[in-house]
Design a protein around this nucleic acid. Sequence first.
DNA 1: GCCTATTTGTTCGTATGTATC
DNA 2: CGATACATACGAACAAATAGG
Lengths: 255, 255
Amino acid sequence: MAGDAVLAGAQRGPLWRQIRQILERRILTGELAPGDQLPTEAELAERFGVNRHTVRRAINQLRERSLLRVEQGRGTFVRERTLGHKLTRRATLSGTAKALGRQLARRTVAVEVVKADRTIAAALQISAGEPVLQVDMLRLLDETPVGIASNYFPLPRFSGIDRLIAKHGSVARAFEAYGVNDIIHRQTRIGARAVSRADVPLLGLARGSPVIVLFSVNVDSAGNPIEAGRSRYAPHWVEFVIDYDTLQPVFGRSG
Amino acid sequence: MAGDAVLAGAQRGPLWRQIRQILERRILTGELAPGDQLPTEAELAERFGVNRHTVRRAINQLRERSLLRVEQGRGTFVRERTLGHKLTRRATLSGTAKALGRQLARRTVAVEVVKADRTIAAALQISAGEPVLQVDMLRLLDETPVGIASNYFPLPRFSGIDRLIAKHGSVARAFEAYGVNDIIHRQTRIGARAVSRADVPLLGLARGSPVIVLFSVNVDSAGNPIEAGRSRYAPHWVEFVIDYDTLQPVFGRSG
DNA sequence: GCCTATTTGTTCGTATGTATC
DNA sequence: CGATACATACGAACAAATAGG
């Protein structure tokens, strides 16, 4: 019916761009979820009070950014999630991306020595308050930011690992320098929350957008915790898959 | 530094209740995440422009509802998630709840015969457009709604299962009447989005709050799909855990 | 297969404001 | 100042694909 956002009279930018931004926000917010069908061009034009051409221009932009999929005669749909990451004992996001012919890069955005809170401490099997190295890394899927990972490394042991990560662009490679040749996931906890204020500019989301939150604990081949991580992912770009059939049965040791 | 929500002058209800609602919204939104420490009572009082007693009253209410945890001398914290549900091949939410001494009930809120969309059809290994029975059930953890599950059953086979579910209060029991004695998870996909308009009143969330979205496919012991489900959970009450060590290795068939 | 309604795709034309030479 | 080019926006009509009966 009524209800739709009115285009502010005196505002920045041409109409089609304002419309693009409105739709983009709704998609990244999840208000328009992957697979959802948009109203018809005619209806959108009427709601926004513009010509159909103007709406089409906005839609075309979002199609180029692969946020929308348009089918002649059927309608316009929100693109399905691009990256379905299968959680297994050794799977990495970059591995999943590469298998799909895409590239997932890291960019370190902050490094800091902090005191382990209770959760981190428990995961790393140290005492709360002991120093750990926090490394915040932006995760970029083909240039677009899709998530942020805050990784925590126990400290005397892995001091300086942030420089190696930056150098190699890979946590696995950095670990090798410390004699760790195998990174194994022990546990992953999955939740959701509204994006934090600090993450908004990094992820390019609107305030209040939901993010998937992962808390993960990784161990070496001997079962010693080597890393704990809190990551936040934009749900439009990434989802997580538990495929019970392909999960590696565990032989041998651990906890 | 400013920033905090101003209490509307002429509004509904006493000050402490308005404050309680503001804090509650922030918690259920995830803006204040589980484990987060609240500002001190004094600071909250100052920001809201009220007496410390008023703030305490609001906090007490939220403590009774187990949204907050107060530690004398340390501070006030957002309660950790109550239900950490371990995903395994056979785990059920109600099982997890029972193991923790809590009760998880179902209440059917809608039943409808619909045409399977592409996703549901693929999961159930039928053709898109074939009829399936959609049963929407509210999930109540000790009376409070924590999620909604939309379950899809292939249709000639399980017609009328909604009445059996309502009768027994259990999907597993209902399945037995159809000769299905084992429900096995084949795949679970996890994402997030903003709560849909329709779910807002059922879950008691604020508009725009994040929800965890699960898409799951269940099969019988012969590997035939018997149910697909889309569930939405309030992230404050539930989180999902993948514990790679305790995941059952798979023996025998499937897929 | 046919007919119809719906929805996107395409191509005209017209008008307006802004920047540039 | 005028002439020109460009981006923006609206309007109308028709073509092409899809879905349903």
